[in-house]
């Protein structure tokens, strides 16, 4: 990787471009700064997948607040939590849990579904 970057830099030795690269690195480093803010104060909502069904299938959360969604998959097969409106997508392996952060959301309904069993695994988040 470093060699590749060096190879790249060999060509891009002009100052402006190196500056751009630095900007990129700073941009990528930004997440690390953000981790300092702990998520303990965020409200946690628990959700369960059993038999390819979300339980509860309707989750009420406070509007305009960031929420930590903990999803337990009680099935032996994996499921993918997905929501187009929330822009969230995550594979949850069988018999395990996953953490997804959502919000802050304006009041409204946000449907989500299990990508692997979309006919049955359906639900929505209601921000109010």
């Amino acid at each position: 990787m470093i060699n590749l970057l060096k190879a790249g830099k060999g060509i891009l030795s002009s100052g402006r471009i190196t500056g751009c690269l630095w900007l990129l690195i700073i941009l990528l480093g930004f997440p690390l700064l953000n981790t300092c803010t702990s998520d303990t104060d965020k409200p946690t909502v628990k959700l369960e997948i059993r038999n390819h069904l979300f339980n509860p299938s309707e989750v009420a959360i406070p509007a305009d607040t960031e929420v930590k969604l903990v999803i337990y998959n009680r099935d032996s097969s994996p499921e993918e939590f997905e929501s187009y409106l929330l822009n969230r997508k995550k594979v949850i392996m069988g018999n395990s849990k996953a953490v997804i952060f959502i919000g802050p959301l304006p009041a409204g309904e946000y449907p989500f579904f299990g990508e692997f069993h979309p006919k049955t695994a359906q639900g929505k988040i209601i921000a109010q």
Binding site: N51, L53, N55, Q122
Partner: peptide
Amino acid sequence: KEINFSGYR
């Protein structure tokens, strides 16, 4: 309507 009960949809 679509409903959930007794572990099924």
